[in-house]
């Protein structure tokens, strides 16, 4: 009898907390869908530039699953910087020379295999010269997705902690007390940013130093820009966390934002090959903050780029923080009459 009462009570509680119920039933489907879209999308097709390549080899290359177009080295390097080309092949003194874009070990290997097949004629062993525009030969997969993880962890933990602590401010009645005092809503939001910013700075520094010096993550660019991106990423997480905590009644509901807010960002931020994602969901990436953080971190750490190249990403992250903070100030109006 008591077992029955407990069972019935739990079922009833679930039906009273519709959000938890929905989360339990819908979230797995949502995440599975995202995963299937990411992994079942079109295969990514490497795009290769060629110059002065003999006709037979060109024909063999075109038979492969790649996009081939003629260009000189200058054009190729320009396209490497834009990120629209994976490799460039030419022939110098009968010796094939391959320049790889280089930042993704997976793509590197794929291109090398394809080219090897195309230039290999029976009985003759040709070893092409391989150069890396970005990265190095010894680059591992971790070097490639490590920068994304740095951004992700900074985002994830700050989001959770900020969300919960702002929620407590509401449930504990301290927010009400603050709203009864002369403090301005913007002062609360900015104070939160700075207070958490202090620990975010420590956290970001620690993550970055540990990844680079202990885990030996590839790091070509400037430390300061990695720190700047991580910090802005954490600020975005902080402002989003405090904003969303307005829509949570308890800690559990903050946790429930993870599958909705965090998980999709992971899939669309470049941890997995973005080019392989089905076209009709590829718009999701560019609306998530982590996308810009990951891109900028890779630019700095793998490609050694500086402020000019990541300025747009920094600006977008800053814009996100600003937008979420402003929304948060608006949301706080609910708690005060003036």
């Amino acid at each position: 009898m008591r077992v029955k009462a407990i069972t019935v009570r739990i079922i009833k509680q679930f039906f009273h907390d519709k959000r938890t119920l929905a989360m339990m039933l819908v979230a797995p489907l949502l995440i599975l869908t995202i995963i299937s879209l990411v992994f079942n999308g079109e295969d990514s097709v490497p795009s290769i530039g060629i110059e002065q390549v003999p006709e037979p080899v060109k024909e063999l290359l075109k038979e492969q699953k790649i996009t081939v177009s003629e260009m000189d080295q200058g054009d190729a390097e320009q396209k490497f910087r834009e990120g629209s080309l994976d490799a460039w092949i030419t022939l110098e003194d009968n010796q094939p020379r391959i320049v790889l874009e280089g930042s993704d070990p997976g793509t590197n290997q794929m291109v090398l295999n394809i080219v090897q097949q195309a230039i290999q004629s029976p009985g003759q062993k040709i070893k092409p010269d391989v150069e890396y525009f970005y990265g190095t030969e010894g680059m591992t997969s971790f070097d490639n997705f490590g920068p994304v993880l740095i951004g992700f962890f900074a985002f994830f933990f700050v989001f959770l902690i900020a969300g919960v602590s702002f929620l407590r401010e509401r449930t504990g009645g301290t927010l009400e007390r603050l709203m009864g005092s002369p403090v301005k809503k913007s002062e609360i939001v900015i104070g939160y940013l700075l207070g958490f910013g202090f620990f975010t700075l420590i956290q970001s520094t620690l993550i970055v130093i540990y990844s680079i010096y202990v885990l030996d993550l590839l790091m070509i660019g400037d430390f300061i820009w990695v720190l700047a991106v991580t910090l802005l990423c954490a600020f975005t997480a902080l402002s989003l966390g405090t904003l969303l905590s307005t829509y949570a009644h308890n800690e559990l509901q903050i946790i429930q934002f993870i599958p909705i807010v965090i998980v999709p960002q992971v899939f669309f931020s470049g941890l997995f090959d973005l080019e392989a994602i089905s076209d009709w969901v590829s718009w999701i990436g560019p609306i998530t903050p982590l996308y810009y953080a990951a891109d900028a971190l890779r630019d700095v750490m793998i490609r050694g780029l500086g402020f000019e190249e990541i300025a747009i990403n920094l600006a977008v992250l800053f814009g996100f923080s600003l937008l979420f903070s402003a929304a948060n100030i608006l949301a706080l109006r609910k708690y005060r009459s003036f």
Partner: peptide, 15 residues
């Protein structure tokens, strides 16, 4: 607002 002291039902303290 400065002239008012308000004590709510919840304690409103940082524990």
């Amino acid at each position: 607002i400065r002239q008012i002291g308000y004590m709510a039902q919840t304690d409103g303290l940082y524990h």
